[in-house]
Amino acid sequence: MKKVSNPSLAARRSFLSKLARAAACTGALAGAGALGVGVAKGASAKTEAKPAAEGGSFPTKDYDWTKHQWAFGVDATKCIGCLRCVEACKVENDVPRNAHQFRTWVERYVYLEGEDRARIDSQQDPVNIAASGSEKEYRFANRYKDQKVDKAFFVPKLCNQCTHPACVQVCPVGATYKTEDGVVLIDHDYCIGCRYCVQACPYGARYFNEEHGVSDKCTWCYHRITKGMQPACVEACPVGARIFGDIKDKQSPVSLFIRNNRVQVLRPETGNAPNVFYVGIDKEVN
């Protein structure tokens, strides 16, 4: 270890802490330590190529995730079921264009006269697919127009970015995680594709992308919100049924939405503590 340049110092520190962890696991490392130091030189070269986020903000140079805490509001009383959010989401996030995999979707609840349970469908229902004419396009069929409807409403759904996400809990490799600013992300380069997280989500928010062999779900368009934009679905919603913002900012749309409404979350009994807040849903929605 003759020449010690600055970047290699950091690498060596990280290596040494790794080594310390290893040593804690076994006492038999005394001999291997010497071997390891030799390898450390090689490892340091690798770190120098890393994009330098150090010293600046993280995750990007223009965005500091410690300064935000994102939240999402859904005003179901405004939703018109046009499904432009679903369309925008599929395009923005390269979600497979079929009727079985969605990052966001819209549910329709219809109580017909004389029925006490809602009839529920979503854009993937065969009747709705028949109305749109393709699994790649989405529209709600006007299937109840000739019936007497007591009550009907639409409910947009998406990942709840739970405070205690069941999906993150069960991931065996740490390929899904909660960011500091409150979004649950999936590392598509690290996911092994076991689909345990898909099983664990009580909201059905995750799907498995067969083509890429990894799980996928809504990220609240993390690549947009970190650039100061709105998620694609919020941007596309023509009636303001989707509200997004930073709850650290008391005047943000979502802060006002939560403050000015009696909001509720889906399946609070799971203890997941969702961060999508709903207004205007009723007992059948979960």
Partner: peptide, 21 residues
């Protein structure tokens, strides 16, 4: 069953201890 069987060792390299799996 895995979507990425070649990454199976990730589970032993960086085991996520809160996961039963």
């Amino acid at each position: 069953h895995l979507g990425h069987p070649e990454r199976a060792f990730n589970a032993t390299i960086t085991p996520h201890w809160s996961s039963a799996m």
